[in-house]
């Protein structure tokens, strides 16, 4: 059974993966000599669902600004479409085999079974590819928010008065709140619990460092006209907190891009 990257993908694909495995097993054990039932109706249902997916997929990439999504979606859609066509061919071949009068399978029956398995596997693989393409787009969306927050931290160096500080905090807070929510949602969906633990830890550290950053900025504002040790300490603290938060966000970006099997790279 494949390892699914997210619970959403797992929930969608696991039942079909199980059924395809069963069919493959029956075929490999040579136990699929029975005449197949008429599969044209279920195959037409699959074909209609594929047509809908292709339409939805094409609509989604038409509107997106994500160039990678635009590039990666068509091959996955093509794989699903080709596989659906293979299922139709399978049903035509199997209908010839249904007319046989002996226990022995016809060449069409054998070919039809092969196409049925290849088509079902292709649908599974193509749908999986497509879901992963969209999942990667979602990861890029979260990474963009990460980079925006990380870039905004540079503004801390120009905070010189109380008014600047208020603007800085007012601008930083929505970004970090959005980021925390997105990371929380992502953690709920990931299947690799090592990645979840690492992401949660990094995000908790970001949240823990923010009050320290604000305090250091406040201390700098209070000493802005009084150069000396207190001001130096405030600058040192500001640099420490911005560096820490920035590094934690960089690590979050790295962790978000890992796939479910990348366990060795968690540390």
């Amino acid at each position: 059974m494949p390892v699914f990257h997210t619970k959403t993908i797992q929930m969608i694909l696991e039942p079909v993966a199980e059924q395809v495995s069963t069919l493959v097993l029956i075929h490999e054990q040579g136990k699929d000599g029975n005449q197949m039932p008429d599969l044209i109706n279920p195959i037409l249902t699959v074909k209609a669902a594929v047509s809908n997916l292709v339409k939805v997929g094409k609509d989604q990439i038409k509107d997106t600004k994500d160039e990678i999504l635009k590039l990666d979606t068509p091959p996955a859609l093509e794989k699903v479409e080709t596989s659906a066509d293979m299922l139709v061919q399978a049903s035509q071949l199997l209908s010839i085999d249904q007319k046989r009068e002996t226990a022995e399978m016809t060449p069409e029956g054998m070919e039809g079974r092969k196409k049925l398995i290849a088509g079902s596997r292709g649908i599974l693989q193509g749908t999986s590819d497509l879901l992963l393409v969209f999942d990667e787009a979602e990861v890029r969306r979260i990474c963009k928010v990460c980079r925006n927050v990380r870039d905004y931290l540079n503004q801390s160096s120009i905070v010189a008065g109380m008014e600047d500080l208020v603007v800085f905090v007012k601008s930083l807070t929505p970004g970090t709140t959005t980021l925390a929510r997105m990371i929380g949602d992502r953690c709920k969906d990931l299947t690799n619990q090592n990645h979840v633990a690492a992401l949660t830890e990094e995000m908790d550290q970001v949240k823990a460092y923010i009050p320290g950053l604000i305090s250091s900025l406040k201390a700098f504002v209070q000493t802005v006209d009084k150069p000396g040790k207190a001001q130096e300490a405030a600058i040192g603290n500001r640099e420490y907190y911005t560096t820490q938060i920035s590094e934690r966000i960089t690590e979050i970006i790295r962790l978000l891009q890992l796939v479910s099997t990348d366990d060795a790279n968690t540390d």
Partner: peptide
């Protein structure tokens, strides 16, 4: 969301198809 719904429909339809094919073969086992 639309992609997820469309993918769910494919998965459901393919599961039903493969299940029907397997069931017919299992009768022989």
């Amino acid at each position: 969301e639309q992609i997820l719904e469309a993918a769910k429909s494919i998965a459901t339809a393919t599961t039903a198809l493969v299940k029907a094919a397997s069931a017919a073969q299992k009768e022989l086992v």
